[in-house]
Design a binder for these strands. Structure first.
Length: 560
RNA sequence: GGGCCCAUAGCUCAGUCGGUAGAGCACCGGCCUUUUAAGCCGAGGGUCGAAGGUUCGAAUCCUUCUGGGCUCACCA
């Protein structure tokens, strides 16, 4: 044995990349650029398939006879390469989402291409082929290749051709590979594109104007969520990535755009889950001289049409649920949902009495801190509770023996009838979330939201503790949120004030006071209804995907 | 952030009681002129996610870390 060291073994992947690189070099040696850009296909594979499908012979044809004399030219990614010595089969796939097989045979292919190009071809390469089509004796439409070019030499091997890419982490991180080998994944994103186009077409037909409003906001508004904070250098100004476009869109309604919509990203600085990605796509639209009831009708029509166009049916399966989108959808008030679905018999009393509501909420598992926060709703400016006192109160409230006394003290602290109702409504809504939300499987419009959880919605004329608002639930998930807009500037100022106080009392997700928005309302906003629809969730529903990451091309991941 | 689970060849996965690494596909060489998960013969390919620890000996047991999945919380 010699003491000469063995060269360190190359890893498999490095070896394969090296071999493929060498094939690129070999192509150059024969005068072919391995990343050439001087050849274009003339025919989309899907069109070729559609055109020649009628020519499929009834009985298999042993002879290799072109269907007609036309030379076709197709290009796409080689999905595999099956060699038989003097015959090689190469199925290719192009952007028309179709495959066709190249039949490469020494007797038909140009001699130089067979000797110089074919040996350098690997699965994964982008190739172009020219020749007539024929049917093989196994009944497969194929290109009888006369000329063959490698347009782009691929250096990395494709994943297992049978299993595809199954590791979900790699599918999201290397979406280009996932898409290249998985037609099903491509289909989801093609459908997503059709859905978004369908939404635009639906709204455009109804004279809505598509607009783009700022995505960097100087103050937080339009929703209850924590924002991403950023900074503008030249202006030395803090900015927030928007959590909702709502307040800008309504400024446009003030300006005379009676029907506007925007489809774009919102950003919310919260946890990730199957239902949440920090950036997500939201449709918001506003229609003057309409009410939330008009928008429920519109939503039913729009989602139903999208289902017809994209799924071809109003019945679909999502996350294990058989759904029926046929109109009309059930309409149910929050109070009714608590009573009927949540099984809370005393629901009517709950929404009128904060003490009963607090007790009921605790019984159904609402966290003590949330209950206490609701019971502090409506305190006059300047009497906010400090974080220390808040923590003490929550601790006392958690003790069943002390709870009635603590709750009574909180309720009596500002015992106007209006505030009592607001607090009861807030607690009633938390009761809804705890008892009924998950049971809303078939499409359901939940209506008449408590005022406390709807700072931008119009107060109901008959029952001022509720708002003219709805949310659409399907499979226990919120899909849409709409309401008649609050256009009374004085009421809006009071609601903003309540938000500011809730933040001071410890609520994490609140809006800032937007004085310019109030000024806009003072100019006068026509009676208007507005709605937001989560496009990602809509796409999930219509494509049957259980995870939001499967409808977002590049979901947020930790760095590799 | 909490709980549960996962990480072995380029890909998909085995790996028993702790005894020093396996298969299929891919890749490389050979045969093959209608295949389609082509077939047959042969060869190569591994820091077993990372770092510590226990042990004569660790892919295997323990600890920590990293990344991911599900779930809870928060939210839409």
């Amino acid at each position: 044995m010699s003491d000469r060291r063995e060269a360190p073994p190359e890893k498999t992947l490095e070896r394969i990349i090296g071999e493929r690189r060498d094939k690129g070099t070999a192509l150059r040696g024969h005068g072919h650029h391995p990343y050439r850009n001087d050849i274009s296909p003339r025919d989309a594979i899907a069109a070729v398939r559609a055109r020649y499908l009628p020519s499929k012979p009834e009985v298999p044809n042993e002879a290799i006879t072109p269907v007609d004399g036309e030379l076709l030219c197709v290009a796409g990614r080689a999905m595999s390469k099956r060699g038989f010595g003097k015959t090689v089969f190469v199925p290719i796939r192009d952007g028309s989402a179709a495959d066709i097989q190249l039949y490469v045979n020494i007797e038909h292919l140009a001699a130089d291409d067979f000797a110089q190009v074919l040996p350098q071809l690997d699965a994964g390469d982008l190739v172009c082929a020219e020749g007539p089509v024929f049917w093989t004796k196994r009944g497969e439409l194929s290109i009888l290749v006369k000329r063959l070019w490698i347009l782009t030499k691929s250096l990395r091997p494709l994943p297992d051709k049978w299993h595809g890419l199954t590791d979900v982490e790699q599918r999201y991180r290397q979406r280009y590979v996932d898409l290249a080998v998985s037609p099903d994944v491509q289909d989801v994103f093609r459908l997503r594109s059709r859905i978004v186009r369908g939404v635009r077409a639906f709204l455009d037909r109804r004279d809505f104007l598509e607009v783009e409003t700022p995505m960097m906001h100087p103050i937080i508004g339009g929703a209850a969520a924590r924002p991403f904070a950023t900074h503008h250098n030249a202006l030395d100004m803090p900015l927030f990535m928007r959590i909702a476009p709502e307040l800008y869109l309504k400024r446009l309604v003030v300006g005379g755009f009676d029907r506007v919509y925007e489809i774009n990203r919102n950003f919310r600085n919260e946890g990730l889950s199957r239902k949440h990605n920090p950036e997500f796509t939201m449709l918001e639209f506003y229609r003057a001289y309409a009410t939330y009831r008009d928008l429920m009708d519109l939503t039913e029509e729009m989602v139903g049409q999208l289902a017809d166009e994209v799924v071809g049916s109003r019945k679909l399966t999502w996350d294990g649920h058989e759904l029926d989108l046929a109109a009309p959808w059930r309409r149910l008030s929050v109070l009714e949902a608590v009573r009927e679905l949540g099984g809370v018999a005393e629901a009517d009393a709950v929404f009128a009495d904060p003490l009963l509501a607090a007790e009921c909420a605790v019984t159904h598992g609402v966290p003590a801190a949330d209950v206490v926060l609701a019971l502090l709703e409506g305190l006059p400016a300047g009497s906010e509770v400090s974080p220390a006192v808040f923590a003490e109160t929550v601790a006392a409230f958690k003790n069943p023996g002390e709870r009635p006394r603590v709750a009574r003290a909180l309720v009596e602290r500002y015992p106007s009838e209006e505030v009592r109702l607001i607090r009861a409504g807030h607690l009633g809504y938390q009761l809804f979330e705890a008892t009924a939300e998950q049971k809303l499987i078939q499409p359901t419009f939940l209506t008449e939201y408590p005022l406390a959880v709807s700072p931008l919605a119009r107060r109901n004329d008959a029952r001022p503790q509720f708002c003219d608002r709805f949310e659409l639930f399907v499979a226990g998930r919120e899909i849409a949120n709409g309401f008649s807009e609050l256009n009374d500037p004085d009421d809006q100022r009071a609601r903003f004030q309540a938000q500011v106080q809730a933040k001071a009392a410890g609520a994490a997700e609140t809006m800032d006071y937007d004085e310019d928005y109030c000024r806009a309302l003072e100019v006068g906003m026509p009676p208007t209804a507005g709605e937001g629809i989560g496009i990602d969730r809509l796409v999930m529903m219509l494509t049957g995907q259980a995870s939001i990451r499967d409808v977002i091309l590049f979901p947020l991941m930790r760095p590799e």
